[in-house]
């Protein structure tokens, strides 16, 4: 049986209390929400916090508030996010992304906040300690070299969250609270393109909620590439959101790629669509442009060149769905369920 290391454990009741504990414990403390990312990592000794500060009993983190847009508490489980009718109706890309995370059980456990703060992943790193010892560890933990690119100065571990690309395409912001105060950040700014320091969040900050703007006139979608219909992390996530005029002319468009970099990749390819219609040619051009910036590495499942080759195709799936094409057959083939 894989077992957790020893840790101290706190279960605060309020954000303030949690923030206070985090501040007092210093860098050796970590938050635990659903634990579905942190606990496997601890069992494999990739992460070994001395103290766990549990968010489970913290009040207010499961809030769903309608205002001008929608506010989602970081403590909502992904199943709760999927079940929220507002998400399904108005923020379809998020709904589709959340519904494709991991497996049904893991969605019942894993939270939105945890998904946004998910550790970056790499096949040289998501391994037991003795496995990592056999390669003399790597830069991300206990070692020197990055085995994915031995000359790389930085870790190239992959941002593997499904909901972050979707939320970025939807223009989401997040609130971070610490003992020192609170700040709001565009979600895109929460991420850094570095496999080790992948979050701009300070260790003493708690992500408490996600704020979505009112998106009247927008449509969004999320397409995920993975081997199986369940369990697997994304090998590519394509989140797309467009606002179109009644005649179908694109007024605004955002295309975000997940799992092809150490952070969710907000591409500039969306600009190509603005002012035109979602024609096959425009879609192909966007696919080409966005595909060029995707940098999959040999540290996840399947052949990396293939993963890069199919980026334009997945972007096309997304944009065709937004155009109104019936994509159900493709969706069934790729996702194995309708979304």
């Amino acid at each position: 049986m894989m077992r957790l290391p020893w840790f101290k454990y706190h279960a605060p009741r309020s954000v303030a209390e949690a923030a206070h504990i985090l501040a007092a414990e210093g860098g050796d403390a970590m938050l635990i929400a659903g634990g579905t990312d942190l606990l496997p990592n601890m069992k494999r000794r990739q992460q070994t916090p001395a103290t766990l500060v549990s968010l489970r009993q913290v009040e207010g983190l499961k809030r769903i508030a309608n205002g001008k847009g929608l506010t989602l508490g970081a403590g909502l489980t992904l199943s709760e996010v999927v079940a929220a009718p507002q998400v399904r109706e108005k923020y379809r890309g998020l709904w589709q992304a959340a519904a494709q995370v991991a497996s049904p059980h893991l969605r019942n456990m894993g939270t939105l906040g945890g998904n946004l703060c998910l550790d970056t992943r790499c096949l040289y790193y998501n391994q037991n300690e003795d496995w990592r010892r056999a390669i003399d560890f790597c830069m991300k933990r206990d070692g020197q070299t990055c085995w994915v690119a031995t000359r790389s100065k930085r870790c190239l571990a992959v941002s593997s969250t499904d909901t972050a690309p979707a939320l970025i395409s939807l223009g989401a912001k997040v609130r971070l609270i610490s003992a020192e105060g609170e700040r709001d950040l565009a979600l895109n700014e929460l991420y850094c393109n570095d496999g080790i320091d992948y979050l701009a969040r300070r260790p003493d900050e708690i992500l408490t909620e996600v704020m979505l703007p009112d998106l009247a006139g927008w449509k969004s979608t999320y397409w995920k590439l993975r081997r199986r219909g369940s369990f697997d992390f994304p090998l590519l996530g394509v989140a797309a959101a467009v606002r179109t005029a009644p005649d179908g002319t694109v007024e605004e468009a955002r295309i975000v790629l997940g799992a092809v970099s150490s952070h969710p990749l907000l591409t500039e390819a969306g600009q190509l669509l603005v002012g035109g219609k979602l024609t096959d040619e425009a879609i192909a051009a966007v696919g080409k442009k966005a595909g060029a910036v995707a940098k999959p590495m040999d540290n996840a499942d399947l052949d990396l060149y293939w993963r890069k080759d199919v980026v334009p195709e997945f972007i096309a799936y997304a944009l065709r769905e937004l155009r109104g094409d019936d994509m159900s057959e493709t969706r069934m083939r790729v996702t194995r369920q309708l979304l």
Binding site: L123, I135, T150, R228, S230, F231, R336
Partner: peptide, 28 residues
């Protein structure tokens, strides 16, 4: 998986886990 031989003699199982050793799920 083999590492660059100049740097390491390691030869490790690429994916000794149920997540990465892929098998069909009910949906597949």
């Amino acid at each position: 998986r083999r590492l660059p031989p100049k740097l390491s003699a390691a030869l490790v199982h690429r994916i000794p886990s149920m997540l990465e050793y892929k098998t069909l799920t009910a949906l597949d």
